[in-house]
């Protein structure tokens, strides 16, 4: 495997490594005294990330995911890792009352976010009928989806890759650092001096400006926002987060950021909150995980009250 990660020492014992995978930038900030160990970690993280990309990308025809989709209608044998991911996706579906649905990717066929145009109901309707993860039959060693269903792990894959990258670093003995794959973050442990990492939260109104900095000692941070992809039409924002029942974008929250035990957890909680619209606030509070949510009209909600540094 050709490693493409770039490594530089940005401060004494603090390394920044960078490579591109999963359709975006992947960055590691590692606190480590040993250059060779850092290099080893960066190479191992890149290899693991590419493994996950090759296994679960829906753009690669021989990925496990593409094969599952190609074999839709048929019981397919799966390995333990795929079972765990699909089981996690299933739990997200169940816990979100069907809003978080990895079979809703087919809606992308109706929405082309490069052009500000709404889909025709007659294109949307047949796609909606193909959605519904309750029709997936998942067992520990096999899965069967209906012939018309298509799975897309886009909503979990990157977060999972971040967590796996963190596990790789931890296995090599690296305890201090932060892993950032395009905004999905896992903090391995505090900086060498014991201080927390400051994770910037984008301002959904001005995505290149930080809204707040969250101090994080350990754990995952993920944001879901209407600024990532979408278009404006007649004064309304149409974003890429689509309700699987209506086929239309959600519009209550501009962004939801969650800090939780891992990037995967933070990622699914923030996405479910976006999908839950106005009811998400009470739901988020029940979860007892730190969050910062901004409505489309600019109101901010956060818990705990002072988690951030303005």
């Amino acid at each position: 495997m050709v490693t493409r990660e770039v490594i530089q020492e940005v401060a004494e014992g603090l390394w920044r490594c960078h490579f591109t995978a999963l359709g975006g930038p992947c960055e590691l900030h590692l606190g480590c005294d040993d250059r060779r160990l850092t290099q080893q970690a960066a190479a191992a993280v890149e290899a693991e990330t590419r493994r996950i990309e090759a296994k679960y990308s829906r753009y690669q025809p021989d990925s496990v995911l593409s094969q599952l989709n190609a074999r839709a209608g048929l019981a397919c044998p799966i390995d333990a890792e795929t079972h765990q991911l699909l089981n996690f996706a299933w739990l997200c579906f169940q816990q979100s009352d069907g809003l978080f649905d990895i079979s809703s990717g087919v809606l992308q066929q109706a929405w082309d976010f490069r052009q500000p145009r709404l889909p025709e109901p007659q294109t949307l309707q047949p796609l909606l009928r193909r959605i519904g993860l309750e029709r997936m039959q998942l067992q520990s060693d096999q899965v069967q989806i209906p012939a018309d269903m298509e799975l897309d792990l886009g909503g979990l894959g990157k977060e999972y890759a971040v967590d796996r990258a963190a596990a790789v670093c931890q296995q090599l003995g690296i305890r201090s650092g932060l892993i950032d794959f395009g905004g999905d973050i896992q903090v391995l442990g505090p900086k060498a001096d014991g201080s927390p990492w400051l994770v910037a939260v984008r301002n959904p109104a001005q995505p290149d400006q930080p809204l707040a900095g969250l101090p994080v000692y350990q754990g995952g941070v993920a944001s879901s926002g209407n600024y990532e992809r979408g278009f404006d039409l007649d004064g309304r924002r149409y974003c890429h987060i689509l309700n699987p029942r209506t086929g239309y974008p959600v519009d209550y929250w501009a962004s939801v950021t969650v800090v939780s035990g891992s990037a995967l957890l933070a990622g699914c909680l923030s996405t479910i909150a976006m999908l839950k619209q106005a009811t998400a606030l009470a739901w988020l509070q029940q979860q007892k995980q730190a969050f910062l949510a901004v409505t489309t009209d600019g109101r901010q909600h956060r818990w705990p009250d002072q988690p951030s540094v303005e």
């Binding site: 296994k55 990925s63 094969q67």
Partner: peptide
């Protein structure tokens, strides 16, 4: 043949 491409072989 990567482990995850061996689905057919496990059938």
């Amino acid at each position: 043949v990567a482990p995850w491409q061996r689905g057919h072989l496990g059938s």
